[in-house]
Amino acid sequence: MLKIVVPIKQVPDIGRVKFDTEKGRVDRTSAPAEINPFDLNALEAAVQIKDKLGGTITTISMGPPQAESALKDALSRGADEAVLLVDREFAGADTLATSYTLASAIRKLGGFDLIICGEKTVDGDTGQVGPEIAEHLGIPHVAYVSKVEEVGEKITVVCDMEGDRYLIESGFPMLITVSKDINTPRLPTFSDKLKARKAKVEIWTAADLSSIADQARFGSQGSATAVRKVVVPSEEARKGKIFRGIVDEEVGGIIDALEEGRILEGIK
């Protein structure tokens, strides 16, 4: 019976979120929040292992109080327990502080065998938090897992690295980060959703971690990197020459332009 931990993050719906070009800010209120899409793959991978071998799935998130809804969503998708790490002390964390905080909380959970993270988040977009949690905990990890081949005494996974495919075996405890290719997350049923609404999300604050963690390493205080400026890239730099009308003229026009710019020349 495996004890599986799935760290998930609540993120804004990237397709709808608005960016303030002038101030270079992200308006998080402009779009609904959801579970980071890759974390749904992580959760589904956990559920598939549990379906086969039994075990428990604990999902954990560090975020604002509203992130409770993401954890309830995770409960409706097959997690057994949910923990929300919420405290002002945690705010402004970079990946170093985030991974330290999550690793501390995972320690507090007691024993675990397998941690499954998403490949990356759509907002932070670093893919660092998973491997960094593993380093804090002193356990091995495999990133970019596209398939869980076998789980028993050990775990064997497939990992794709730009044209090379590795089949890697590891003992427990260990951590994997999964790409979207690993599965198609199933949708929760209506009754799952109802049940989850009543389920309890545990709330832990910085004080709850004080016996096992160094509070100076949480949040912005514990962060090594800081964002100094944000710019919204302008697409104006492109030539933006649009041809429309009669296909023959368009095609001729565009190739003339390519030839003029000597673009096809270097190609072949």
């Binding site: 979120v17 992200v26 759509v122 907002d123 090594a224 990197t225 964002v227 944000v230 710019v231 919204v232």
Partner: peptide
């Protein structure tokens, strides 16, 4: 350090302490 974030929607300038 300049990097895209938010799925490439923004460019962040980052310093390391």
């Amino acid at each position: 350090q300049i990097r895209p974030a938010f799925t490439g929607n923004i460019l962040a300038h980052i310093k390391t302490a």
